[in-house]
Design a protein around this nucleic acid. Sequence first.
DNA 1: CATATACCCATTGACGCCCATATAATCCCA
DNA 2: TGGGATTATATGGGCGTCAATGGGTATATG
Lengths: 153, 153
Amino acid sequence: MDLFVSKYINKIDKKGRVSLPSSFRNVLPKANRNEIILYKSIKTPSIEGCGVGRLKEIAKRINNLDFFSEDYDDFSTSIFSEIITTNIDKEGRFLIPEELKLYASIKTEAAFFGQGHYFQIWEPKKGQKNTEDSRRRLLKEKKSLRMMLTQQK
Amino acid sequence: MDLFVSKYINKIDKKGRVSLPSSFRNVLPKANRNEIILYKSIKTPSIEGCGVGRLKEIAKRINNLDFFSEDYDDFSTSIFSEIITTNIDKEGRFLIPEELKLYASIKTEAAFFGQGHYFQIWEPKKGQKNTEDSRRRLLKEKKSLRMMLTQQK
DNA sequence: CATATACCCATTGACGCCCATATAATCCCA
DNA sequence: TGGGATTATATGGGCGTCAATGGGTATATG
């Protein structure tokens, strides 16, 4: 499986380390399996993460913008300076920077939610509530959910 | 990682030395790991820096402007003639020239902002404010920032 | 000779690496 | 197929190394 799926709740130890779920580690390319990038989610009080490969794609995209435009600076500031790379140790653990923990209200436990090509890290209770809310929103438009699930090809 | 990423705030000591963040040093090619270039940012009161290799890229960008335009002269004058090369000592520190510190209002602390293929050095508070402003501008076009981050392939 | 800058050494705290354990998952063979 | 044995994962902790920082001294450069 090359997608981040499922949900896991892991503990953060005294040193601030937390295990990246094993199934998530396996999604990372063998080449860069010991490094991930983290950044604040745009829409929710959660942290998003993925392998570094994705960052290189983003870099390429930004590089294609007009170098002297304001957008160029805005994108590169909002993205590059806000992205944090963090190393995964031999046991599969990594450190969540203090600033990101604050942003997501994470203290002693971290809930990992697979999101396909990336994943989110939530404070467990908030994550749970978010799941319920988003399901509720979807059900309001049952039709579109049904379409999503049953649509062929 | 071969990109300048993340944000760091380092102290400037009595002698004017400041550490280039370790992760930034690692971006520099092993060959010229003890030398960087600095210049005034065109658009903001900050200093921009990168490895010497990047000079060629900058030249290319400027060359792509209309040769007879005013911009061409302005850019090539503002950038090339003002570029300063600086050496990094054994401990990874370097000196920020007085003129550049003045330009960026930097006194006792320097905030390093990764920008992909280069980085910016700001007076911490101004840098913080710039990040917020730039994010605010982008959020007005929510779609584009989200696209930048989540678009596949 | 005076000032600026490079090199050397020292300190502190953070982080990575190693080893250890408990629980859970998987295997394997009789 | 049952159940012990093996392996993997999550977690805890010791310790060495490295990054950031401070300061003394040599060296250069005008």
